[in-house]
């Protein structure tokens, strides 16, 4: 966002601040408030800290009219624009600007130590936020500079998907179920049960709807597609039921025997033998 479009927010307001002319700083040490005429401030007024974008402004204003007396733009803290004195926590040196590229160092002081603390923390918080913003924008810029992975299709590019024999089942969902199978048709066949090849008449009946599932060769030959196909395979009510599965050596023979005793589930055994 362009700087001139950014909002100015107020970080801190202190209604009572003293301003001092200060002697030039000795080059080998920091400022000392004890060198100032602390009991004779050169100006008193209100202090506000505002921020616009990343820059903070310390504004000295008339207590009554609010007219701007002087302001100090601060681009970093701690930095040259705001310095603490070496001998007190209540006094600071700020660099005010006249707007034409000239600046002057003046001393400011708070009678209340808490006000000085607030002043300090307001600036610290603002520049902590600036640091985070800078890091975030740097990271997002690095992300933008990485080559992008383009997984889109090129102009006119096509791909061909081959998904088993799913096309054979198209339209099968709306096919009415044979009555009498009830909820039992949702159950998958027991794994590795004895397999009987369906008689020709049965496979003719279902060839209009689905391709007959592959016959497992062994106990490990079954797969998930067999189970799924069970959902739509019709119970061959209209066809002649195949011979019942031999129960002499079939682990699951009891099921066909038991279900055949229930009248309306008579076609059920023929449903199992397809697998």
């Amino acid at each position: 966002m362009a700087a001139e479009l950014e909002y100015e927010s107020v970080l801190c307001v202190k209604p009572d601040v003293s301003v001092y002319r200060i002697p030039p700083r000795a080059s080998n040490r920091g400022y000392r408030a004890s060198d100032w005429k602390l009991d004779q401030p050169d100006w008193t007024g209100r202090l506000r800290i505002t921020s616009k974008g990343k820059i903070a402004y310390i504004k000295l204003e008339d207590k009554v009219s609010g007219e701007l007396f002087a302001q100090a733009p601060v681009e970093q803290y701690p930095g040259i624009a705001v310095e603490t004195v070496t001998d007190s926590s209540r006094y600071f040196v700020i660099r005010i600007q006249d707007g034409t590229g000239r600046s002057a160092f003046i001393g400011i002081g708070f009678t209340d130590r808490g006000d000085a603390f607030d002043f300090n923390v307001s600036l610290q918080d603002h520049f902590k936020w600036v640091k985070q913003e800078t890091e975030i924008s740097k990271e997002s810029q690095e992300m933008d500079n990485r080559p992008k992975l383009d997984l889109g299709f090129k102009e006119g590019q096509t791909i061909k998907l081959s998904i088993g024999n799913i096309t054979a089942k198209k339209g099968g969902a709306s096919k009415p179920r044979a009555s009498g199978t009830g909820g039992l048709s949702l159950l998958p066949p027991p794994p590795g049960g004895k397999v009987t090849i369906p008689p020709p008449s049965s496979s003719v009946a279902i060839s209009n709807h689905v391709t007959p599932p592959p016959i497992p060769k062994s106990n490990h030959g079954g797969n998930d597609s067999d189970i799924l196909l069970d959902l739509d395979s019709p119970a061959p009510v209209s066809t002649s039921a195949p011979a019942p599965v031999s129960t002499s050596n079939d682990l699951w023979g009891d099921f066909s025997t038991a279900s055949s005793s229930v009248p309306n589930q008579a076609p059920q055994p023929s449903n199992w033998v397809q697998f």
Binding site: R21, L60, A70, I96, D98, R102, A104, I106
Partner: peptide, 16 residues
Amino acid sequence: PPALDIFGDLFESTPE
């Protein structure tokens, strides 16, 4: 700004 009335003699060109 009014600060110049009081502190005008303190202002110097801001070093870059």
